[in-house]
Design a protein around this nucleic acid. Structure first.
Lengths: 248, 248
DNA sequence: CGGGGGTTTGAGTCCGTTCAAAATACGTGG
DNA sequence: CCACGTATTTTGAACGGACTCAAACCCCCG
């Protein structure tokens, strides 16, 4: 139980309260007035999660809505036969759990912190109160869900139409914004928040295949992998991977 | 242009107007009062679509919302490389196109009638007017989108974790409610609304593989296929197919 | 009766999987 | 700080499901 350590986290970032929260203006919660914000602030619970820690589990009654301040969360779904897949990743600034709040009683997937996270939790009563006070908030979530649906449909086409290699490249590219930095030498450096296993699950594959695909990428001079660090000297080569039609 | 033929379709079903519409009470539109219904009724356009006819195309500006009175529509998505997949099927009673209405400006997939359909179209201006008059309607769509998202996530797990055979069986089962009937001999008879090609696309596969899987199902005495007709004498056998763990 | 699209069948191949073992990274306690 | 046990990752070899290509077949429609 490291929960008591969460206040140590706050000082360097100065987001002890919702009013000062930097992420808010780019999120669903950007249109709250100060009375709403006060309500949000007094009801939210900010916690720190270690990598691997679970926020909620598929089948649990939906506890409320989460907002990721820092870190990345994986949404995972399991079926009755024991199969499992990571459906998507959610990064800092994104909310989480609203789908289950609106869809029904229980969580239809599990959420696990893949890196160390700082996350605000808003109990469902508070969410409900906010929605009642501020109809625009509901509309924001309507738009949010529509966008989620769109990108989830993309994933379907993605997984069936693209090779492992392309899917992996696509993942690297999608992590660039949150986990990439340019070195002085002009080399893009990614620090992956995911284990190989999680990468495999996210891409609908196996760890062995991911390892092999990574190996192939290295042999072709596309990227260099060292544990979770990825070095990409020529971003265009990565982009070209996606362009190339497999069939001549 | 068979549009002019649409009124011939109405008499046998007596749903010339929204007030009398049978499907309404089980849809998003069930909570409209009579003033709203009048608005809906005067703005809707009811049309008949032949199999293969397109309602809207990916990339088009979102025209409004459709309601399927009769028939089935496939939502298809294409990518830049020319890949394509049927994302889902929508049956009688379901609405269509609302995701694009809420998400943004253009349609993110195409919609094609897979069987002969009767479909009501509500222009986006009318949708907007209804939403403004009736906040509960927006809430219904919020719930609807959340449910769509849930089932689309299921599809992802489905496609990666299940064999072709299981996916095909699952599809048959899901078509049972809309396209199945019990014969006098107690045999379940399905009349598939889909061509093999469409089945393949929906299952993330190819027509050849679908043909082979169908063949295998017949050899194992699970079902008998004759064109688009499917005869299933023992439903439990179908259900067992899904239960069975592939690995011992 | 002769196209023409859709479907089925056949043969061969490939991508990704499975199973198994070796190598590496990781955390823990001495 | 190092040694050890465990978990993860990588590599290897063999298998297999689904794909590709190609031809034959079928059915519908003109």
């Amino acid at each position: 139980m490291k929960r008591s350590a969460r206040f140590e986290q706050q000082p360097p970032f100065a987001r002890a309260n919702c009013f000062a929260c930097q992420g808010r203006n780019r999120s669903e919660w950007c249109q709250l007035d100060s009375a709403d914000l006060a309500l949000l602030d007094s009801n939210k619970v900010t916690s720190r999660y270690e990598a691997g820690q679970e926020l909620f589990r598929q089948g649990d009654p939906c506890p409320g809505v989460y907002i990721i301040e820092r870190g990345t969360v994986a949404e995972r779904r399991d079926d009755a036969q024991g199969n499992s897949a990571v459906i998507r990743l959610r990064h800092a600034g994104e909310s989480l759990g609203y789908r289950d709040y609106f869809a029904g009683d229980v969580c239809s997937n599990s959420a696990v912190a893949v890196a160390e996270c700082t996350i605000c939790f808003i109990p469902r009563q508070a969410v409900q109160a906010l929605l009642e006070r501020n109809p625009a908030l509901g509309l924001r979530f309507l738009t949010r869900l529509a966008a989620d649906l769109k990108s989830t449909e993309d994933t379907i086409l993605h997984n069936t139409a693209l090779s492992m290699r392309k899917r992996l490249v696509h993942l690297l590219l999608s992590l660039k914004d949150h986990y990439g930095e340019m070195t002085d030498e002009g080399i893009l450096r990614l620090e992956l928040p995911l284990a190989r296993q999680e990468i495999a699950s996210l891409l609908g594959s196996r760890p062995e295949t991911v390892a092999r695909t990574i190996h192939a990428l290295e042999e072709d001079g596309i990227a260099v992998f060292a544990g979770r660090a990825v070095l990409i000297s020529d971003l265009d080569k990565l982009l070209d991977e996606l362009e190339a039609d497999t069939e001549p």
